[in-house]
Simulated scan of single mutants.
Amino acid sequence: MTSVLSGVSDELDPRLLEHRRELTGYCYRMLGSSFDADDAVQETLVRAWKSFGSFEGRSSLRSWLYRIATNVCLDQLSGRQRRALPMDLSGSPWSPVEASLAAKRPADAWVEPVLDRQVLPEDGDPAERAVARESVRLAFVAALQHLPPRQRAVLLLRDVLRWHADEVATLLDSTVASVNSALQRARATLAAMGGTPEERPLDADHRDLLARYLDAFERYDIDAFVALLHEDATQHMPPFEMWLGSAADIGTWMLGPGSGCRDSRVMLTEANGCPAVAQWRPTADGGHAPWALHVLEIEDGRIRHQTSFLDLDNDLFARLGLPATPDAEPAAG
């Protein structure tokens, strides 16, 4: 947080900071990046603080903040290429060989992960929490990036945040008819892409699966690891364009180009509404350093998909508040 904000947080507007988490979730869905979302929320709060004295209260403080946040996001999205996941770029899986690492894109090309504790409510109605969790899943966030920015805002405000059409129209300086039309087009686009979120609760069997996943990974028992995956499981590895399309190929990769992950340390967390695993890879001096955050999609008792966000620039863990070493405490969210 900027010194400007921290300097006034105990004076004029502590209420502004109460909305930080939900605003971060909204901006993350809009922008596809937790880091851009942090910047957008910070800009929102700075703008709100500077004009707080002129806030007339004709709308709620929450609505006023969402209006500012929406404008900040629309400004950020102007002229920007959409973020994607590797499977969006190539219809066929790649071979599990080192040469597949040749194709790489910069960080701003990819949808980025976000920890649940950064964007999801800690309490509240269970049904609303379920909707919020599903709406930050990677596939849904990636699908949102295909929508024009204003359609994206309308869909999020109406279908995720449950705002009324007239409230959205007021926020966007539009009409109810225009909002309803934009919502219909956005829903049709997402439905055609299979991007509509569906609730997938985590049950006791899933928790047992995750315990076996952690154990197999740390022992580097690849046979046991592969047995936890669906036969047609897939894996992304941003920032590389490559993706793998079967449990067998994932196992081949881990025993081949990915074998440097042997003797890693891992920790269970939650990201993008899913179980996630933080991984620290061994270093030459005998320690461990941040390597990847693996976001896991579970279906029918096995792992269907794994998105492995690699920390190649040594800033992913730090910016997400994950510890630099496996024995350190995570940063407060």
Score class of each variant (00 low, 15 high):
T2R: 03
L5R: 09
L5N: 06
V8R: 12
V8F: 14
S9P: 00
S9A: 14
L12Y: 10
D13M: 13
E22K: 11
L23W: 04
Y26N: 08
C27I: 09
Y28C: 09
D38G: 11
D39P: 00
Q42W: 01
E43H: 04
T44V: 06
A48V: 06
S51F: 02
F52I: 15
G53K: 06
F55W: 12
G57L: 07
S59E: 15
S60V: 11
R62Q: 11
S63L: 09
Y66A: 01
R67G: 15
A69M: 06
A69Q: 08
V72C: 08
V72T: 14
L74R: 12
R82H: 11
R82E: 12
L85D: 02
L85R: 13
L85Y: 01
S90H: 10
P93Q: 04
V97C: 02
A102L: 13
A103V: 11
K104N: 08
R105K: 13
A107H: 09
D116T: 13
R117F: 03
Q118T: 08
V119F: 08
P121Y: 00
E122N: 09
A127N: 12
E128D: 14
A130L: 06
A132V: 12
R133L: 07
L138F: 02
A142K: 11
A143P: 06
L144H: 00
P148D: 10
P148G: 07
Q151Y: 07
R152L: 04
R152H: 04
A153M: 03
A153I: 03
V154I: 12
L155S: 08
L157V: 09
L157K: 10
R158T: 12
R162F: 14
W163K: 14
A165C: 02
A165W: 05
D166C: 04
A169R: 03
T175A: 04
A177R: 12
A182P: 01
L183C: 08
A186C: 09
R187L: 10
A188Q: 12
L190N: 07
G194K: 05
T196D: 03
P197G: 03
E199T: 13
A211K: 13
R212T: 03
Y213V: 07
F217D: 07
L228Y: 07
L229S: 04
T234G: 15
M237T: 14
M237R: 14
F240N: 13
E241V: 15
W243R: 02
L244T: 13
G245V: 05
M254H: 15
L255I: 08
L255H: 05
P257V: 05
G258I: 03
C261K: 06
C261H: 10
C261Q: 10
R262E: 12
D263R: 11
V277F: 02
A278V: 10
W280Q: 13
P282E: 02
T283C: 04
T283L: 02
D285G: 10
D285S: 12
H288A: 09
W291D: 13
A292F: 02
I298H: 01
I298E: 01
E299H: 08
E299D: 08
D300V: 05
G301F: 07
G301K: 05
R302S: 11
I303M: 10
R304M: 09
T307I: 10
S308Y: 05
D311W: 00
D315K: 11
L316E: 04
L322D: 00
A324R: 11
A324V: 01
T325V: 03
P326S: 03
D327Q: 05
P330Q: 02
A332M: 11
G333Y: 04
